[in-house]
């Protein structure tokens, strides 16, 4: 039950960090939240607000449901034996959410922004699936708890670096973040978010931060050994505090994702689709093949 407020808090902290790196005040996200809460929603002629609000409300809900199977420390809130697949299923709900959020207002920029989610999704999803299934192959389980436990001696980020990098790139695309922010692009005056104000806008923007945070959290059990200390440190300096190690690793992954936004300019969807299918998919298949051969040998 503390999962949703906890996710909101961590996502808010991440948003504050982003504000600092963008040269704004760290309180900007909080101020912006209060401002949006105090504003009225906006309607456009002949719109479909009901459908748009279904999507807008689904975005943060999907983020919380995705986080529910992630072990925060040594135990997951819901220890699902097919947790990796469940996580994937919840994150594709975001495609639908952003698409209807852009569709609802019946406005050009908003609609085009919503449609941009589709080529983005079609480009990142296959490398993403291969990237999350590779640790599962190595651990012989689809449960994130079991995958984290299988990394006692060697982090999967070290053993399968290509899968780790592909995971980071694809979750940035999943949360339409950084170079993949085209659905909310400035060239479309805000894209899918253009016509949303007040609570609607807050749900979309906060839901996106929550999605990014939940995806960063999943990287910890999949690639960074979960709540265990790094294998090279020898005896655990903080025994019995897996949640602490989880928090440190989550902060590192979030930092990498924030740096990605600063380092790479916005990509055109068509170029990213080419890159994904010509480079990223073969790379992901090769990584999965290497891991499978090592596991079988």
């Amino acid at each position: 039950m503390v999962l949703a407020p906890g996710l909101v808090l961590v996502a808010g902290l991440a948003a504050g960090l982003k504000a600092v790196t963008a040269g704004e005040s760290p309180a900007t996200p909080a101020v912006e939240t209060l401002r949006l809460l105090g504003k009225q929603r906006r309607r456009t002629p002949d719109d479909d607000p009901g459908l748009a609000r279904v999507g807008l409300a689904l975005l943060p809900v999907a983020a919380v449901l995705a986080l529910a199977v992630v072990p925060l420390g040594d135990r997951a809130p819901v220890d699902l034996d097919v947790g990796v697949v469940w996580f994937n299923a919840m994150e594709v709900v975001a495609w639908f959410a952003v698409w209807v959020a852009g569709w609802g207002p019946n406005a050009v920029t908003s609609l085009a922004g919503g449609y941009r989610v589709l080529p983005l999704g079609l480009a990142y999803e296959v490398p993403h699936m291969l990237a999350i299934i590779t640790p599962a192959i190595a651990a012989g389980s689809l449960s994130p708890v079991a995958i984290a436990a299988a990394q006692q001696d060697l982090w999967y980020a070290v053993w399968m670096p290509a899968a780790f990098v592909l995971y980071l790139v694809s979750v940035a695309a999943m949360a339409f973040w950084g170079p993949f922010a085209a659905p909310l692009g400035r060239d479309l005056a805000g894209g899918a978010a253009a016509e949303h104000a007040g609570l609607d806008r807050l749900l979309l923007l906060a839901g996106r931060w929550m999605l990014l945070t939940a995806a960063a959290a999943m990287a910890v059990p999949l690639f960074l050994g979960g709540g265990a200390p790094p294998p090279i440190t020898g005896p655990d300096p903080f025994p019995g505090l897996p949640a602490l190690w989880f928090g440190v690793k989550l902060a590192v992954v979030l930092g990498l994702l924030l740096a990605l936004r600063r380092a790479v300019p916005m990509l055109r969807m068509a170029r990213f689709a080419t890159l994904a299918w010509v480079v990223l998919v073969p790379l992901a298949v090769a990584q999965a093949l290497v891991v499978t051969l090592v596991v079988l040998a």
Partner: peptide, 9 residues
């Protein structure tokens, strides 16, 4: 979910 979104394409 993915299939519905591909249907939109």
């Amino acid at each position: 979910t993915i299939e519905m979104m591909i249907m939109v394409v």
